[in-house]
C-alpha cells in the first residue's frame, strides 16, 4: 500500500513548526527509514500517519484515500512505540490478542481462532515461550518482539515503528534489525521506521527520508544519499566529512590559502563550502602538512593532518606504509561535494 504525504504541517505552540510542509511518496511494500537529528519531526510525522496526532495543514493519502477524518482506531495501521507501550497488566498473550478482542462482535474471531493466531504470531517473532509472562518479566529485545507481534495481529497494511531499536544493546540492535528486514521481506507490508542512527538506516532501508527542521531534505536510496547529497545539510549529516570553505570560479573550487589543488565544482561562482570525506582526502609522504595523529580502526588507518591552522581527517595513499606522528605529508582531494556558501550552515 502506498503512502502519499503532501504539504503536511504541524505546529506545537509558537516557534518553528514540528512539521513544515512535508512531502513524501512511499511505494507499496517499501521499507523506508525516517532519519534525522532529534527535533527534526520524525516521530511527529509517524504519529500523524497513525492518526495519533492531527496536522494543521496538508494531506495524507493511504492507497489513494485521504485519511483526514479517519480516527486512529479505524485506520488499521500497525504502530510500534519507542517505549513499546505494552499493556503492563496483561500477559504477552493478552497483549497480542487485544487488537482482535476489541473488534466489534460481528468481526471478532472466535476465542479459539484468536488463540491460534496469537500463537502463530508469537512463533513468527520467535518468542512462543513467553505467552504467560507479563511485560515486566521479559527483556527489552523480547518486549520489542512482542510489541511487533501485537501490531501485526490486526493485519495492518502499513507498519510504523518509532525508534524500534532505540532502547536496546548494540548487539541486540544489530540482530533485531536484520531479523526485522527479513520479516518485512516475507510479509511484504509497507514499513516506515524512525531512527536517528544512520548506520541502522543505511543497513536495512530501501530508501531513506532525511528530515531536517520539519522538512524532508532528501528522499533517496542509501548509496545515492551518500554520493549525491541534495544539499550541504545532507552531505554533512551522513557520514564523516571535512568541511572546507572555498571559492568557486569558472567551475573550479579554490581552497586558498590552504595548499590544496582546485577541484571541479558545478556551482555558480562565489563563496562555497566543500565536503571532503576522509577516504577522499589522500595523504602522500612529504609536503606542507604535518601528521598530528594516526589511529587504526581495525581495517583502515586514519590520519589527522594539520594543514595551516586546520586539522583535517585524511587517509594515507596506497603504498605509504606506517605514517607516524610529526611526519610531513601532502594532501590531495580525490572528490568533493561543493555547495554554495549561502545555502550551507
Amino acid at each position: 500500500m502506498s503512502v502519499e504525504i503532501a504539504g503536511l504541517t504541524r505546529r506545537f505552540g509558537a516557534g518553528r513548526p514540528a512539521l513544515h510542509g512535508v512531502e513524501l511518496l512511499v511505494r507499496g511494500g517499501e521499507f523506508v527509514a525516517l532519519l534525522g537529528p532529534s527535533g527534526s519531526g520524525k516521530t511527529t510525522l509517524l504519529r500523524v500517519l497513525a492518526g495519533l496526532d492531527v496536522p494543521d495543514a496538508g494531506q495524507v493519502r493511504i492507497d489513494g484515500r485521504d485519511v483526514a477524518g479517519v480516527p486512529a482506531r479505524a485506520r488499521g495501521i500497525g504502530f510500534v512505540f519507542q517505549s513499546y507501550a505494552l499493556f503492563r497488566h496483561m500477559t504477552v498473550f493478552e497483549n497480542v490478542a487485544f487488537g482482535l478482542r476489541v473488534r466489534p462482535r460481528g468481526a471478532r474471531p472466535r476465542e479459539a481462532e484468536i488463540a491460534a493466531r496469537v500463537r502463530r504470531l508469537l512463533e513468527l517473532v520467535q518468542v512462543p515461550e513467553l505467552e504467560r509472562r507479563y511485560p515486566e518479566q521479559i527483556s527489552g529485545g523480547q518486549r520489542q518482539r512482542v510489541a511487533l507481534a501485537r501490531a501485526l495481529a490486526i493485519e495492518p497494511r502499513l507498519l510504523l515503528l518509532d525508534e524500534p531499536f532505540g532502547a536496546l544493546d548494540a548487539q541486540v540492535r544489530k540482530d533485531l534489525r536484520i531479523w526485522l528486514r527479513g520479516l518485512h521481506d516475507r510479509l511484504g507490508i509497507t514499513t516506515l521506521f524512525v531512527t536517528h542512527d544512520q548506520d541502522e538506516a543505511m543497513a536495512v532501508a530501501d530508501r531513506i527520508a532525511i528530515l531536517r527542521e520539519g522538512r524532508v531534505a532528501q528522499f533517496d536510496e542509501p548509496a545515492a544519499l551518500f554520493d549525491r547529497p541534495a544539499d550541504a545539510f545532507v552531505a554533512g549529516f551522513l557520514g564523516e566529512a571535512n568541511r572546507l570553505p572555498c571559492r568557486v570560479a569558472g567551475g573550479l573550487a579554490h581552497f586558498a590559502p590552504l595548499p590544496l589543488a582546485p577541484v571541479p565544482a558545478a556551482v555558480a561562482d562565489g563563496p562555497a563550502l566543500a565536503f571532503v570525506r576522509p577516504a577522499a582526502l589522500v595523504a602522500t609522504p612529504g609536503g606542507e602538512g604535518v601528521v598530528r595523529g594516526a589511529r587504526h580502526d581495525g581495517r583502515v588507518l586514519h590520519l589527522s593532518v594539520q594543514l595551516g591552522d586546520t586539522l583535517l581527517e585524511a587517509t594515507p595513499a596506497p603504498g605509504w606504509e606506517g605514517p607516524r606522528r610529526d611526519d610531513r605529508c601532502g594532501l590531495r582531494i580525490a572528490s568533493a561535494l561543493v555547495f554554495p556558501a549561502d545555502a550551507a550552515d
Binding site: D53, V54, P55, D56, G69, P71
Partner: peptide, 13 residues
C-alpha cells in the same frame, strides 16, 4: 467526528 474538532483537541484518545 469532524477533522476540525479533532485538530482542536489534538489527541487520538
Amino acid at each position: 467526528m469532524t477533522a476540525a474538532r479533532r485538530r482542536w483537541r489534538r489527541s487520538a484518545l
